[in-house]
Design a protein around this nucleic acid. Sequence first.
DNA 1: CTTCGTTATTCATAATTAAGAATAACGAAG
DNA 2: CTTCGTTATTCTTAATTATGAATAACGAAG
Lengths: 116, 116
Amino acid sequence: MTKKKLLLKANGRIWIDVQDGAFLGYGRIDLLEKIKELGSIRQAALEMKMSYQQAWQLIDEMNNKSKEPLVISSRGGKGGGKAIITDVGEKAILQFKEFNKAFQIFLTSYTKNLNS
Amino acid sequence: MTKKKLLLKANGRIWIDVQDGAFLGYGRIDLLEKIKELGSIRQAALEMKMSYQQAWQLIDEMNNKSKEPLVISSRGGKGGGKAIITDVGEKAILQFKEFNKAFQIFLTSYTKNLNS
DNA sequence: CTTCGTTATTCATAATTAAGAATAACGAAG
DNA sequence: CTTCGTTATTCTTAATTATGAATAACGAAG
């Protein structure tokens, strides 16, 4: 039998950097997905219980750090304005999700290691 | 040739949880090592440019979440007091460092993946 | 029984972050 | 040319964290 001990769990979080700092993490990915779903920064922020300013700032940073923007927004017009995810943005979402999937597998595997 | 694109870097941080929350991360490991080296919570905190209260609180939480303490401290006596790392603490340091080593390898490998 | 430097603890204040309020700009549609 | 709901932006205020000050307790050593 395995020795009786605390149950440990390997945990962590990941993100993707570019040269000048953090680029894509869980929060930004969630935000991108919500924007894709709702077509609006404000609505996305609302649903994430995040202030509009914070959401806007996250997107702005993201766009500035990338050569091509991940989100394109416009104001005025039908509905007052809108925001859409570019192809670059869509690819970033997929890329991050795969990265995270691999990480979760790593964590699960290491958790077994910690308790053996 | 590979398509010209942003240089991406997989990054992240890890820690070890117990049932009731975070247990061991980079900060606590650094602190444990400094205490081991210096035999004093205060000196360790000083060297880490961290307030004594924060250091003490980190250790206290750590000790409370573990069945057996990782640090034993005493006050009074020669030198005013002291703090030592238990065997459990030493093992925790090693365990975390191995975990981190594996994680760094994972990140390096995934960074290549991101840029290919 | 005084000195010493630390552990242990509490509380007020400083510093940092996040949120909120307020407002201009916008363009399609009626 | 007015209405609409959003984007974009700034500034003030709230909330959260971290730090510093202050002090009691401690026990070995002289």
